[in-house]
Design a protein around this nucleic acid. Structure first.
Length: 147
DNA sequence: GCCAACGTTGGC
DNA sequence: GCCAACGTTGGC
């Protein structure tokens, strides 16, 4: 899962009450579907910092609550307000994530791109803009071996 | 700040 | 259903 550290960083998550926060603001259908359909309690997740000096994977968290409506879509004062989502028929969903740990070092996008083992990893594919993407077991283990 | 890539919107 | 216009993402 990607986040801009100026918006919400791994440290922000670590400092939340119970080290848990809802992952609101996703307004992309593919990403929504993954949260809604695929992410289960206890699933481990990489936290990726985007749009910053050193884009890359900075930590690990886990799914603490399975999908429920993203209430920020209902709030006209919220940055992520979507008039087309209403409480009776929510368009956007989110999960809660809980901090597990920071990585000893950032595994940078640059480094990930250099690994032939990750050729099929969506993050390093050209033009990829998805903020949430699946990681296979093999990819997960390989990436962690780079820490 | 630039811009390629991609998603969404809406007229037709 | 097509596709041009537009908005957003995010690396660089």
């Amino acid at each position: 899962m990607k986040s801009e550290p100026t918006e919400f960083s791994i440290s922000d998550l670590e400092n939340m009450p119970n080290q848990t926060e809802h992952w609101d603001g996703v307004r992309n259908y593919q990403a929504r579907n993954m949260m809604r359909d695929d992410m289960k309690i206890g699933d481990q997740v990489f936290f990726y910092h985007s749009n910053c000096d050193e884009p890359g994977i900075v930590g690990i968290m886990k799914v603490a609550r399975e999908s429920y409506p993203d209430f920020t879509a209902f709030d006209p004062d919220d940055k992520h307000f979507d008039p087309k989502s209403d409480t009776n028929n929510p368009r956007w969903y989110m999960v809660d994530v809980k901090f597990i740990r920071k990585l000893a070092k950032t595994i940078s996008l640059k480094e990930l791109k250099q690994k032939p083992e990750l050729e099929d990893f969506p993050l390093v594919r050209r033009g990829n803009r998805l903020s949430i993407m699946p990681v296979s077991k093999q990819q997960w283990d390989f990436i962690l071996s780079l820490e």
